[in-house]
Design a protein around this nucleic acid. Structure first.
Lengths: 206, 206, 206, 206
DNA sequence: TATGAATGAGTCTTCATTCAT
DNA sequence: CATGAATGAAGACTCATTCAT
């Protein structure tokens, strides 16, 4: 009848059981993935709902509007990315090797440039939305910067601004988004290694 | 009555004096600027028309649809960027200094990540549109890569993939988009210098 | 998570102490007030529920749908108005003075025109709903008309249709809704007095 | 295909000729009538558009939003009412007779209480919208008040506030909206006469 | 060359309503 | 007794696009 329905569920509270993921989680994960892939305006709540197998109204039950869902989704994604990166960075081994693993993971899952996406969505987001995203983003940069700072103290890296290195490193990783850069190598590992080579030699203590 | 009219132009073909550009040029420049600032979906033809002081229909007179205007605008912008970069890169001086000038110019006019924008617009663009953009984009990378190749031959840079360096260099320049990276320095020149420092040391022949 | 919860009430049946009214009464009073202030369509059950501190579903527990709640609320309000008016009209004193008190009370609490509200809600109301409202409304007119009839019999008012006077009187009271009429006087009492003056002179036996 | 279409017109500018009313006029007249009959929220632009035989988008071409259309429509209606009333009031004859004609016309075309409608629409209207409506409304009251003032000067009516009389008179006319008042008489003329009787006797110089 | 007038499809959002618990 | 979780339908509004002039 309607184009919205995937699996047509009846209105009203669904019966319990189904140890499937709680719907709110499904929504935010789907949203995070889809927004990262297509940006803010290009994807409609209708489409996100369809992927989740719910109706638009269900999304509105959990998130008050598109901007709010977007913000929550990006926060969620950045938090996940932070956790994953932290776990890699906190593990054993030489800093350079850990960076390589981080690089590999990011290249294997390419994702849009947050700055560009924010510019696109800016008109719809409130100050508070932007703050929330920025602050989740900063945790990632801070994490990298802390490790760089330590390495500077230990004489592995040239003294300088650790935050600059964090930005430089993550900017370099955006190469993973470009097909024409990816195609220079036959595997993601090799691209990751080359990027880290360049970065490390550029930053290390001579 | 209608919100579309901006300035009531005098009837008849408008004169070209007083630096008035031909309308088509006004349109494409405005479009280029606006798309780069806000992305594809976030800006409507209505808005572009309004900025140009014409009506939507006028845009359709020159470009058959939004995707076409977008493509033409991005091509235009990339061509300009290519020309400007070429002129800087072909000038006298040490390669490193020329890179610094290129970096400075790009940082001073920050602009969105093309890859991210294309992902957003992808659904609306035809294969041909994408080809056209990619090929304009490639001219830029090729330009850089050629200079890097020469430098490798002259023993200034480590042998390797010049195209990789081109991507690395332009990825690093995306730092110029991030406020939190800009704020580490008190001037664009300093940011440009730091980026090129890192890049150069990372790429040069030891 | 949900915007619907207001106050988290303790589980189990709520105590009735501290002037807490039974929920159903809270609902209908709130509904009456809100519908009278904003009309039928302009107010959502969500909003009414929020004011009451309950959820929409609770309203549905007591009233089968919005039209039913509206009808009950208007009936409730008209019944209250009837009681209050009856009490004023049945008290001692000259009819004219009693009318003045009625006028004062109504002017002090201005309220929308029922006819206009009904026209707005009409599409949603069943025949039965409308009947119920009309009949509650009629009690008010009848009340006034009876007093007017008596006064005619006693020779205070010109003979004629008492019901016409009832309508005329209550129409005149709608002036109390208009700011520009209210502002002609510095107090509600004065406006009430002026209205009754005009009415009385217009209706009295010469 | 779509439920919107009445007569399916093709997009693009319609061919000239058709000395039918210009569409904007059709829209505002339809809107005025429909809003007066059903209020603000109860009628959708879709419905108004359908009555006019155009699409919603056409309405938006002429009016920037529903509140704006509403405001323009009410202004239009009040202006018409003002013109009609003025023409009746400025004609020859005794004031009382002219009032009767005004009363008759208004009773014959009953219409909602503006105050009630405004309360309903208030949340959607801007300050400016309300101002515009109020000021169109005032012209009507002023018109009546001027005639009453003259009559006071000529000793026909008791001295007092002419504006109060204007409000009283038009409030009395709202009886024309109530079926139960209308049914007291077998013709609109009689109702009009009775209302003016009461008003006149209530206001005249003794 | 340029535009005014119109459309159809789609977007976000809100709402009344349902029902398992 | 009361609610949390969901739905389908509809509403306001926007947009790319068309076409007669």
């Amino acid at each position: 009848m309607s184009k919205q329905k995937r699996v047509s569920r009846t209105p009203g509270r669904p019966k319990l059981n189904e140890q499937e993921m709680p719907i709110q989680k499904v929504i935010i994960q789907t949203a995070a993935k889809t927004f990262m892939e297509q940006g803010y305006e290009a994807i409609s709540l209708q489409q996100i709902a369809a992927i989740c197998g719910v109706t638009k109204a269900t999304i509105y039950y959990y998130y008050s509007n598109k901007a709010e869902l977007f913000t929550a989704a990006i926060e969620f994604m950045l938090t996940i990315a932070h956790k994953a990166t932290k776990s890699l960075m906190d593990s054993e081994g030489h800093l350079r090797d850990r960076l390589e693993r981080v690089a590999y993971v990011k290249i294997a899952q390419p994702h849009s440039d947050l700055e560009t996406m924010l510019k696109e969505a800016e008109k719809q987001l409130s100050e508070e939305h932007i703050q929330r995203i920025r602050s989740a983003e900063h945790m990632l940069y801070d994490l990298l910067a802390q490790h760089f700072e330590e390495a500077m103290e230990q004489g592995q890296l040239q003294s300088g601004s650790p935050m600059l290195l964090a930005h430089a490193f993550s900017s370099l990783l955006m190469m993973g988004n470009r097909d024409s850069a990816r195609q220079l190598f036959s595997s993601h590992e090799q691209l990751a290694a080359s990027i880290v080579d360049l970065f490390w030699q550029g930053a290390m203590k001579k």
